[in-house]
Nucleic acid binder design. Structure first.
Length: 188
DNA sequence: CCCTGATTCGC
DNA sequence: GCGAATCAGG
């Protein structure tokens, strides 16, 4: 996974919006929250809810971090993410910035403030990620919403959404929904 | 137990 | 620079 300008843009945006690393990672897709945090640090954004104070300047018994990179092979996997498997809408394309940008308006309106909202595991279950939901009266069918799957480049004039009838309760149509909700696997 | 971000380290 | 491991707090 390469950190493209757009991805970084999205990262910063989401991070600034108060989105948690896990969510950002999920939204961006193909990356772990660690990668997000790591990148965030490198980007210079690290001032978010984290009143954790670790003993750094102790100068004595420094945490003898075992060969992390090497030890990781010991543990195949911590544990399958139990949560986070909720109806998320991770944008698979690199135009995630579009989704974020577009949803930015909605997100901004929905969450104008109070970013201190602790993402309790409860909300995670039914939390609606800032999906690309813009006021598009494109209703090919009555009742069902149009698939908000970003097609093409958001910066391109030809950028458009799928537009197909989205599945009930899903922001995307069946096909795109399958991809959107698909966990990371081929991403690598 | 779950989650969160922060820090550190190996590649 | 990136990402994973680990740590530490709620």
């Amino acid at each position: 996974m390469e950190w493209t300008e757009q991805r970084i843009e999205t990262l910063r945006k989401l991070w600034g919006q108060g989105q948690t690393a896990s969510q950002i990672a999920a939204i961006l897709g193909g990356i772990t929250r660690n990668a997000v945090i790591g990148k965030a640090h490198r980007l210079g954004l690290t001032g978010r809810p984290s009143p954790i104070k670790r003993e750094a300047g102790s100068g004595s018994t420094a945490q003898p971090r075992r060969k992390a990179a090497t030890a990781r092979q010991d543990r195949p996997e911590r544990t399958a993410r139990p949560a986070l498997t909720s109806p998320m809408a991770p944008s698979p394309l690199g135009n995630t910035a579009s989704a974020a940008g577009i949803s930015n308006a909605a997100a901004g309106a929905s969450q104008p403030a109070a970013p201190s909202a602790r993402p309790t595991p409860e909300m995670r279950n039914k939390a609606d990620l800032p999906v690309a939901r813009h006021p598009q009266p494109s209703r090919a069918h009555g009742g069902s919403k149009s698939c908000s799957w970003p097609v093409g480049d958001p910066k391109q004039p030809g950028f458009h959404f799928c537009g197909e009838p989205a599945e009930p309760g899903r922001p995307y149509c069946g096909e795109h929904c399958h991809v959107a909700y698909h966990r990371k696997s081929e991403a690598a």
